[in-house]
């Protein structure tokens, strides 16, 4: 399994792979939840897990240089007022990539909106149909 090998496989590398596998497992389980659970509430919970797993994955991507060393990455804030080129280079090596965090922030906000909307619709379904079981919510067919 050459392609699973992480550079300098130490405890951190092992943890990184373990985290990735967990996220993947989470994605698959939540997909199962959305596709196969009959209750709309359970579907929404699974959907939350799905989008949060995606967000965690994105955050994990941002961790620069983590698998290689013991020293943790630093926040993406440059603490020198007038940086020289060497400062920027060393900063880029140790700092966390800020872009995935920005992406996740956006995705979280959007996910919140969608989730709220789905929760409202489920509530409305419960009011109108008296159930949240999708096997019974099937007036439209054919």
């Amino acid at each position: 399994m050459r392609f699973l090998k992480v550079r300098n496989m130490d405890i951190n590398g092992f943890l990184f792979v373990f985290m990735l596998s967990t996220i993947m497992l989470n994605l698959v389980i939540s997909l199962y939840g959305v596709f196969a659970r009959p209750s709309l509430i359970k579907k929404i919970i699974a959907l939350t897990i799905l989008s949060d797993s995606g967000n965690v994955l994105a955050i994990a991507v941002g961790f620069r240089d983590w698998p290689s060393g013991w020293s943790p990455s630093t926040p993406p804030v440059l603490n020198v007022t007038s940086p020289k080129a060497s400062d920027v280079v060393s900063f880029a090596r140790v700092a966390v990539d800020p872009l995935p965090q920005a992406l996740v922030l956006t995705a979280v906000v959007i996910g919140l909106a969608v989730m709220l909307f789905l929760v409202f619709l489920t509530l409305q379904i419960y009011r109108l149909y008296g159930t949240t079981d999708v096997r019974k919510v099937a007036k439209l067919k054919g």
């Binding site: 997909l31 959305v34 596709f35 196969a36 659970r37 009959p38 999708v134 096997r135 919510v137 099937a138 007036k139 439209l140 067919k141 054919g142």
Partner: peptide, 20 residues
């Protein structure tokens, strides 16, 4: 009409997840 377009979300989900 009866099996595929049954109107039940989970049965659609089967087709969709097979495609995924």
């Amino acid at each position: 009409r009866e099996r595929m377009h049954s109107g039940i979300l989970n049965e659609w989900g089967e087709y969709m997840s097979v495609y995924l």
